[in-house]
Write a protein that binds this DNA or RNA. Structure first.
Lengths: 191, 191
DNA sequence: GGGGTCATGTAATAGGTTACATGATTCT
DNA sequence: AGAATCATGTAACCTATTACATGACCCC
C-alpha cells in the first residue's frame, strides 16, 4: 500500500536511469542542468540517500564501477525490471490521482485571524508583488529557451497556479473590508 | 536566518496557545475538531514532538501539571513572550512572501514524457474526475456550516487552486494532440 | 604554485512517523 | 464483565539535511 521509496527524487532518478545507466554524480549534474531542481527538491546528500534506498528496494542495481584517471571510484547504476515497472506505476498514480497537499500559505490562512486586518492588507500587497516576481521569472524561463514546450509543462502549470493565487489574493483583499469590523474586534485591548 | 522550529504544526500550537494554556491532548483535539488537519499535516506523535521543540526553543513553557481523577498526569503549556513574538513574525512572513514549493504533480509533469501520450490522456481524465470530487467535498464543507467565512478562507483558497488546476489539465488535454506525433515517437520500439 | 571548483562520497545530527504501553471511562 | 474508545505519553525506527573529507583538474 505504500511505496518502498516515497521521495520524489527517487522518481527523478528512475526517470533518468530509464534512458541509460549513470553514476550518482552524473545524475546530480543532469538534474541541475535540466532545471529539475525547480520541480523536485534535492541536495547532493539526499541524492545519495535515495540512490541507496532504490538499490536496497531492488529498483536499481550496480552496473559497473569504473575509475577515470585518479578520481575516486564511482558506481554506475542501471534500472532493473522492477525499477522500470515502478517508474511506470508511480507516474500513472501521480498523474491520475490528485493528492491532498499542505502548502504553507494554507496554514497561514487558517490562523490569519491572529494578525490584525489592517496589517494583513499590507502583507497581502507584499505577497502580490512577490507573486508577480515569481511569475516574471517563470515567464522569462519559458520565453527564453527553445526547448520544446512538452518538456516545460511543469513551468506552465506553475504559472497557472501563480496566477490563480494572485487572483485569489486580490479577491481576498476586496472582501477584507466587509469583515474588518468583526475581525478588528478580536484585537481590541484583548492582548 | 532559520526558524528554531520549522514545522508548521508548531505554528498551529502557538496559534492555539495564544488564546489560553492547554495540554497536548487538548491541542490535538482542538486541531482535529476545527478541521485544521486539512490545512496542516499532523499526527498524535508529531504533536508531542513539536511541543517538545517549542519548549526547548523557549516559545512555550510548562504552566502547571495537573491530574484529573486517575488519568495520567498531564502537562499544561502556556505561550511565553518569545512565543508570542515568534507567532506574529512567522505569520507575517508566511503571508507576505510566497515560497517556492514542490507539489507532487509538478514532479510528475517533469517526467510526463516517460508515459505514452495516449495513456496520459486517459490518466488526465481520471485526474479531472478526482479534482471534481475534491471540489465537491470542499464545497460541501463550505456550504454546510455556519462558521464565519473569515475562518474558512483556507478552504476558499483550496477551492480556487483546485479549479485552476482543473482548467490547466483541460488545457493540457487540448494541446496534447499537437504534440502527439513527436511525443509518441519516443515510445516507438525504443525500450 | 595557489585558489577555486569539479568530482565523489561518508558520517553525524536532527526531524518525523509508527509502534508500543497502559489505565480510565463508557457502552452493551 | 468484556469491548471499544478516550486519554496520555514514551520509545524505536526511518528519513532527510548538514557537515566533514579528500584528491584531481584548471585557470591566472
Amino acid at each position: 500500500m505504500k511505496r518502498k521509496v516515497g521521495n520524489l527524487l527517487g522518481l527523478a532518478v528512475l526517470g533518468y536511469l530509464v534512458r541509460q545507466p549513470m553514476h550518482p554524480y552524473e545524475l546530480s549534474k543532469a538534474l541541475r542542468d535540466h532545471g529539475d531542481d525547480r520541480s523536485i527538491k534535492f541536495t547532493h546528500g539526499s541524492l545519495y540517500m535515495v540512490v541507496g534506498q532504490l538499490a536496497k528496494a531492488g529498483f536499481i542495481a550496480e552496473h559497473e564501477t569504473s575509475r577515470d584517471g585518479q578520481r575516486p571510484e564511482r558506481t554506475v547504476y542501471a534500472l532493473t525490471d522492477a525499477g522500470r515497472a515502478e517508474l511506470k506505476d508511480w507516474m500513472r498514480d501521480l498523474v491520475a490521482v490528485p493528492r491532498h497537499e499542505f502548502p504553507q500559505f494554507v496554514a497561514a490562512l487558517s490562523f490569519i485571524g491572529a494578525l490584525h486586518p489592517d496589517e494583513v492588507v499590507v502583507l497581502l500587497h507584499d505577497r502580490l508583488r512577490g507573486l508577480e516576481a515569481q511569475r516574471a521569472e517563470t515567464k522569462a524561463l519559458l520565453d527564453g529557451t527553445d526547448v520544446h514546450p512538452l518538456f516545460l509543462v511543469e513551468e506552465e502549470y506553475r504559472l497557472a497556479m501563480i496566477d490563480a493565487e494572485a487572483r485569489f489574493v486580490a479577491g481576498f483583499l476586496e472582501r477584507i473590508g466587509d469583515w474588518r469590523p468583526l475581525w478588528a474586534g478580536f484585537h481590541e485591548e484583548g492582548s
